[in-house]
Amino acid sequence: MAQISQDNRGLRLVVRYTVLCLIAAIFSFPLIFMVISSLKPSQQLLADAHSFRALLPVGDISLNNYFDAFKRAPVALFVFNSVLVTGVTVIASLAVCSAAAFAFAFVKWKGRDLALTVILATLIVPFETIAIPLLLEASKLPWIGLDGITWGWLNSYRVQIVPFIADGLTIYLFVQYFKDLPGELIEAARVEGASWFAIYRRVVMPLSGPVLATAAILKFLVMYNQYLWPIMVTQEEQYRPVMVGLQYFFQLNRAWGEIMAYLSLITVPVLAFYLYLQKAFIASIASTGVKG
């Protein structure tokens, strides 16, 4: 019996690892293909695409595509713009949405449930349906800056940041997480004399690591992949993000090698950010059942 169960366990392990390896291969295949291809000249890249050579760094390998990509487009500027817009939006979104969720989860006020329902209802509205009205509004909004009051937000960082700070999904994630925190912790803090803000800052936020990581990664991916909205609101290269920059490589002579080099470059921040928050992200998925 012992022998059989030992064998079973071994077999099960082999099957499990085979399946996991297969899944890992499927997910890493596009990444490997992209990075390897970015090192090959376009003709070789296309010739290799039909064989396993596509996944191997063989043939005429060089960093030329990267140099050419930098020549063709202001890659550094695009990456900077994307990192800036994404970074500011993620941080502001975590602050605003967690504070809103705190008010929904812990503070009693009239109309709270209705307000939350309305916010959750926005989850079913696709961005494309509000893009045009939002553009019209953004083109008329006032701004107080160094030049005094100006009108219209187009061609700026703020027009890419502000509309995405608060969103239903992030608020919902926080509300769900907060509701699972033990209520007695909040009550104990209230009895101890803490204000709502002190409870938010000293009790709730320090216990919200997993949901902060999840919300940050989800927001990061959405913001970093922005394409439609930046195209609509930025006519000047100065403010454009990486996804819009991809257009530069599809105009005139299309060079697949350079496209792959550009894609490899703009993938680095995403991977770095994900790896940085990976542990907390997995802990959060495990604890909240929220899928990324």
């Binding site: 209230r190 101890e192 009790v203 216990l207």
Partner: peptide, 20 residues
């Protein structure tokens, strides 16, 4: 009056000590 202005302290069944 809110709890903080009542001059009371409370010990909860679950202790409610802050884990962090």
């Amino acid at each position: 009056l809110p709890p903080k202005d009542r001059g009371v302290a409370m010990v909860f069944q679950s202790y409610a000590i802050f884990p962090h």
